[in-house]
Computed example of a mutant assay.
Amino acid sequence: MNTRQQIRKYFSIGFLLLLFALSAVTASAEDRLNVTTETQVSLSGKVHITLHLKNISGHPLYSIHPMFHFHHSMEMGNRIEQMQPGESVTIDNDRHPPVVLSGRYPLVVLLHYQTEPKQKESILQTYTGSFHHKEPVESVVGGNMEFVQEGEISKLKIHLNNQSNSLKNVRLMLILPPGLQADKFPGMMTFTLHGGENVYFETGVQHTQSFRSLTGYYPIHLLLEYGEFLKHYTSEIQSSVYFNPIFDLHQHWPHLIAMILFATGLALVYKRRISNLQPKSI
């Protein structure tokens, strides 16, 4: 094997190592359950919700415990002991408080589960959706939000916009990933927005537990509700937060490439020295 072939061989090995590092440290927070809901609302306002779960992780899941967050209330669902890969489960719930106003209502399902039997900490997956009663109205209050990291300080920047000419009393509910808590946002709060008004505010975000095991993107949900002219409206603002892995490839990829090239060079030098030490055939 000549020198050029050796260089190609060791560079190929280094490239494969780089691809392995890419796949190892850029894995994001993926949902292990496929979640869908079907909602039926009678003319009298009685709500029946069907929750469909499917294990799409490729591994068994344990102690799956759904919790429904309804309009102004919460309800625990039945716990599922175990779900095999590809297995589907259907859960029916008719404990949603009757709805009176026509319009659209939010529906949130918090799913706690474990990837190992008797695991100490559960994984949380959040599903958000909505359903309507009599009339599928559309909200005119929207906005956006952004999670920013300024040194050691984490902030959530929120913008609300009333796109109508009338006043709105909007109730907000913030759903953060597990282990995060907003300083100035005690779960729910109310804002009064005048016609055409834009509101900007920030809230600090604190860690309530270790995040060494969490890497990738995690969703953030802000639910908005208000009533007007005997109708109920809801909308949702979504964003995400990124947790850096212990070794952040986005920050250290030049060092990783340099290390691979250095290791390739050392391998070539070692190979040549071994070849020189071998007795030459006469």
Rank of each mutant, 00 (worst) to 15 (best):
Q84G: 09
Q84S: 13
P85C: 09
P85G: 10
P85F: 04
P85I: 06
G86S: 08
E87D: 10
E87N: 07
S88E: 08
S88L: 02
S88N: 02
S88Y: 04
V89I: 11
V89T: 04
V89M: 07
V89R: 12
T90Q: 14
T90S: 12
T90Y: 04
T90H: 06
I91W: 05
I91Q: 00
I91E: 00
D92K: 12
D92Y: 09
D92Q: 14
N93S: 13
N93F: 07
N93L: 08
D94I: 15
D94S: 09
D94C: 10
R95V: 09
R95L: 15
R95H: 14
H96G: 07
H96C: 08
H96F: 07
P97C: 13
P97E: 11
P97D: 08
P98F: 15
P98R: 14
P98W: 14
P98H: 15
P98V: 13
V99D: 07
V99L: 05
V100R: 15
V100C: 11
V100K: 12
L101R: 12
S102R: 14
S102H: 14
S102G: 13
S102M: 14
S102N: 15
G103H: 02
R104Y: 07
R104A: 11
R104Q: 10
R104K: 13
Y105M: 02
Y105T: 02
P106D: 06
P106W: 02
P106K: 03
P106N: 05
L107N: 11
L107F: 10
V108I: 12
V108P: 09
V109T: 07
V109S: 08
V109L: 06
L110K: 11
L110H: 15
L111K: 03
L111D: 11
H112F: 13
H112P: 10
H112T: 12
H112C: 04
Q114H: 01
Q114G: 01
Q114V: 01
T115N: 10
T115I: 08
T115W: 00
T115F: 00
E116H: 10
E116M: 10
P117I: 01
K118L: 10
K118W: 01
Q119V: 01
Q119N: 10
K120R: 00
E121I: 00
S122G: 11
I123A: 15
L124C: 05
L124M: 06
L124K: 04
Q125L: 02
T126E: 03
T126R: 01
T126P: 00
T126Y: 04
T126V: 04
T126W: 02
Y127L: 02
T128G: 12
T128S: 11
G129F: 00
G129D: 06
G129S: 11
G129L: 01
G129Y: 00
G129P: 02
S130E: 05
S130T: 05
F131L: 06
F131A: 03
F131E: 07
H132V: 05
H133Y: 13
